[in-house]
Amino acid sequence: MTYTKKIERPQPNCVGNPTTARSVYHLTLAGIVLCIASASQATTNFPQGPVEMIVPFAAGGGLDQNARAFSKAFSEILNTPVAVVNRDGAAGAIGLAGLAGAKADGQTLAFTPAVSLTSQPHRVKSIKYNLESFTPVCQVFDNIFAIAVLSNSPYKTLSDVIAKARAEPDSVSYGTSGIGSIPHLGTADIEAAANVRLNHVAYKGDGPMMQDLLGGRLGFGAVLASSVASQIQAGTLRLIAVYSDRRHPGFASVPTLKEAGVPVVQLSFGGVLAPAKTPTEVLQKLQSSCERAAKSPAYLEWAAKAGQVVDYLPAEDFARKLREDSQSKEATIKRLGL
């Protein structure tokens, strides 16, 4: 009879074998340290290649030109290329949705007006992003809107417009670039504050609206102040009030709505956003670079020539303004049923 002896091989036992347990412990600890070191090195070495700057509106417009001038200064400070990428559509929602879904490593940012973040989610319920989807880097600019009338218009002040609308409801027509736009929301707030009714004519952009305004077919146009600088200089148009909380530096004689007697402010500001959960070390570098770019001589020189208002604010103040603006726009949108 043949007997076969079964060889028992020792099995690893981290509890019963102190030597093996210590080995596993040290290997695990080494792996953790290596991971931490790699992550630390990744954030320390930011940026790692070109940075993508999403502009959520079409190329060639005022925002696009602003973004390209800013990105040039930003690129020089970060010492890496900053590529402006236009992802337009849905009033900025497509571009911001792209940023919300991007990797939170600082390599993808957005240069955007606040309205796409503070207004659109209240109007379009299918939008998947909100304030918590992003981390503010810094505010860079203001877009100051104004009430523009023909130079021979009978409306010399905002009080003239309100008096006419109060005497004859819906008799004063005004044009904007579209329903839900900053000028539309701001003028709707004027109606509510003054208890009057105006006749809103919504256009698909400023171009067609300006044609009707210059043709005398509108009582006034609610426009970006800097965009009508040439018509004002030529004596074709006049500004009678601005929607912001301060006067436009290029039109210092034009009062704010509050100064004109109507307690309304409709802000249009913007800046740089990063995805939520971007590492602190990366954010710190982005924030300091954003400040330097916004205050750089080259960018300020471009802004002065373009009539663009630069209004830098650090991340904390930018975040606070975004929250307040979101609450304000939500209230107006609900009141209008938009």
Rank of each mutant, 00 (worst) to 15 (best):
P12Y: 15
H122A: 11
A229F: 10
C35H: 10
A234D: 15
T20D: 12
I144L: 10
G106P: 02
Y25H: 07
T19R: 09
G49D: 03
S227T: 02
I94L: 15
P50K: 15
V242M: 01
G270K: 08
P314Q: 02
G178I: 00
A193E: 03
E52Y: 04
L283P: 07
F318D: 06
G180C: 03
I77K: 10
F134Y: 13
S173L: 10
A331F: 15
A303I: 01
R197I: 07
S151F: 13
S181L: 07
M210Y: 04
H184W: 15
A192H: 05
T157H: 04
A304Q: 14
D212A: 07
E132K: 11
K295C: 10
R247V: 00
A165Q: 07
N86D: 10
A58W: 04
P297F: 10
K156F: 01
A315M: 11
A306H: 11
I7Q: 06
A100D: 08
S151N: 12
A303N: 07
G270I: 00
A222G: 13
L158W: 03
E281F: 13
T28A: 09
T2K: 14
A73W: 04
S171R: 12
Q287M: 13
D88V: 06
L213M: 05
F141V: 15
L158Y: 11
T19G: 14
S153P: 04
K321S: 08
C35G: 11
G205S: 06
K329W: 09
A67D: 02
F70G: 02
T4L: 15
G31Q: 00
S328C: 01
D64F: 03
P255L: 00
S126A: 08
Q48T: 13
L109R: 09
S116Q: 03
E301P: 06
V140S: 09
F251W: 04
G186S: 10
Q11T: 05
G205V: 13
G216R: 04
E8T: 09
A97N: 05
V262Q: 07
A104Y: 01
V15A: 06
A90C: 12
S244Q: 00
P255N: 01
P255V: 00
G219Q: 03
P47H: 08
I127Y: 08
L34Y: 14
Q327M: 11
P56T: 13
L99C: 01
L338H: 14
D105P: 05
F57Y: 15
Q11F: 05
I147S: 01
K164M: 05
L300H: 05
L96K: 04
T80H: 06
S289M: 09
A37S: 08
K103F: 09
G89F: 02
S173Q: 11
L158I: 02
I127H: 01
P113K: 13
A37Y: 10
G221D: 06
Q211M: 11
R247Q: 10
G207W: 06
L185T: 00
V309S: 07
E316F: 12
G235P: 12
N66H: 07
R87G: 00
L63Q: 12
G337V: 14
P279F: 03
